[in-house]
Amino acid sequence: MRDETLEPLPKNWEMAYTDTGMIYFIDHNTKTTTWLDPRLCKK
Protein backbone atom coordinates (compact mmCIF):
# COMPACT_ATOMS: atom_id res chain seq x y z
CA MET A 1 0.00 0.00 0.00
CA ARG A 2 1.36 3.41 -0.90
CA ASP A 3 1.21 6.31 1.51
CA GLU A 4 0.68 9.47 -0.51
CA THR A 5 1.39 11.62 2.57
CA LEU A 6 5.10 10.79 2.53
CA GLU A 7 7.56 13.36 1.23
CA PRO A 8 9.45 12.67 -2.02
CA LEU A 9 12.33 10.22 -1.99
CA PRO A 10 15.77 11.63 -1.18
CA LYS A 11 17.93 12.79 -4.08
CA ASN A 12 19.25 9.93 -6.24
CA TRP A 13 16.81 7.38 -4.79
CA GLU A 14 14.27 5.46 -6.85
CA MET A 15 11.33 3.23 -5.97
CA ALA A 16 10.96 0.07 -8.06
CA TYR A 17 8.95 -3.14 -8.09
CA THR A 18 10.07 -6.75 -8.22
CA ASP A 19 8.53 -9.13 -10.75
CA THR A 20 6.08 -10.19 -8.04
CA GLY A 21 5.05 -6.61 -7.25
CA MET A 22 7.02 -6.00 -4.06
CA ILE A 23 8.37 -2.47 -3.60
CA TYR A 24 12.08 -1.89 -3.08
CA PHE A 25 14.29 1.18 -3.13
CA ILE A 26 17.42 1.89 -5.16
CA ASP A 27 20.13 4.21 -3.83
CA HIS A 28 21.99 5.39 -6.92
CA ASN A 29 24.59 7.13 -4.71
CA THR A 30 25.87 3.86 -3.26
CA LYS A 31 24.52 1.55 -5.98
CA THR A 32 22.62 -0.50 -3.39
CA THR A 33 19.04 -1.61 -2.88
CA THR A 34 16.92 -1.98 0.22
CA TRP A 35 13.43 -3.06 1.24
CA LEU A 36 13.32 -0.18 3.75
CA ASP A 37 11.81 3.12 2.64
CA PRO A 38 14.53 5.75 3.21
CA ARG A 39 11.84 8.31 4.09
CA LEU A 40 10.94 6.22 7.14
CA CYS A 41 14.52 5.54 8.24
CA LYS A 42 15.52 9.12 9.04
CA LYS A 43 17.36 9.63 12.30
Rank of each mutant, 00 (worst) to 15 (best):
M1W: 07
M1A: 10
M1L: 11
R2Y: 07
R2V: 10
D3N: 09
D3T: 09
D3Q: 11
D3C: 08
E4T: 12
E4A: 10
E4Q: 13
E4G: 10
T5P: 13
T5E: 12
T5K: 15
L6Q: 15
L6M: 11
L6F: 09
L6V: 13
E7W: 06
E7A: 11
P8C: 05
P8I: 08
P8K: 11
L9Q: 03
L9M: 10
L9K: 01
L9W: 03
P10G: 04
P10S: 03
P10I: 00
P10M: 02
K11D: 10
K11L: 11
K11H: 11
N12L: 06
N12S: 07
N12R: 07
N12H: 08
N12V: 00
N12G: 15
W13P: 01
W13G: 01
W13V: 06
W13Q: 01
W13M: 04
E14C: 05
E14V: 05
E14W: 01
E14H: 04
M15L: 12
M15Q: 14
M15I: 15
M15H: 08
M15P: 10
A16L: 06
A16K: 12
A16H: 03
A16W: 02
A16Y: 02
A16D: 06
Y17Q: 13
Y17N: 07
Y17R: 15
Y17H: 09
Y17S: 13
T18N: 04
T18C: 07
T18M: 05
T18V: 02
D19C: 09
D19N: 10
D19P: 11
D19K: 13
T20Q: 11
T20H: 05
G21K: 08
G21Q: 07
G21V: 00
G21M: 03
G21W: 01
G21P: 01
G21S: 03
G21D: 06
M22T: 14
M22R: 12
M22E: 15
M22S: 15
M22H: 09
M22I: 06
M22A: 15
I23V: 15
I23M: 14
I23P: 14
I23E: 15
I23N: 09
I23C: 14
Y24A: 01
Y24E: 03
Y24G: 01
Y24W: 02
F25Q: 02
F25W: 11
F25V: 00
I26F: 03
I26K: 07
I26T: 04
I26G: 02
I26H: 03
D27P: 00
D27T: 00
D27C: 04
D27Q: 01
D27A: 01
D27N: 07
D27E: 06
D27W: 00
D27M: 01
D27V: 00
H28A: 05
H28S: 06
H28I: 05
H28E: 03
N29M: 09
N29E: 13
N29H: 06
N29S: 10
N29P: 03
N29T: 12
T30G: 05
T30M: 07
T30K: 08
K31A: 10
K31V: 04
K31I: 02
K31S: 12
K31L: 08
K31D: 07
T32S: 11
T32K: 06
T33C: 09
T33Y: 04
T33I: 03
T33D: 02
T33H: 03
T33Q: 04
T33W: 04
T33P: 01
T34W: 01
T34N: 02
T34P: 00
W35C: 07
W35V: 06
W35Q: 07
W35N: 05
W35M: 08
L36P: 01
L36G: 09
L36F: 11
L36Y: 11
L36Q: 13
L36E: 10
D37N: 07
D37T: 06
D37W: 02
D37M: 00
D37G: 03
D37I: 00
P38G: 00
P38A: 00
P38Y: 00
P38H: 01
R39P: 03
L40V: 14
L40A: 13
L40T: 11
C41Q: 15
C41M: 13
K42M: 10
K42Q: 12
K42R: 13
K42F: 06
K43A: 14
K43H: 13
K43T: 13
K43N: 12
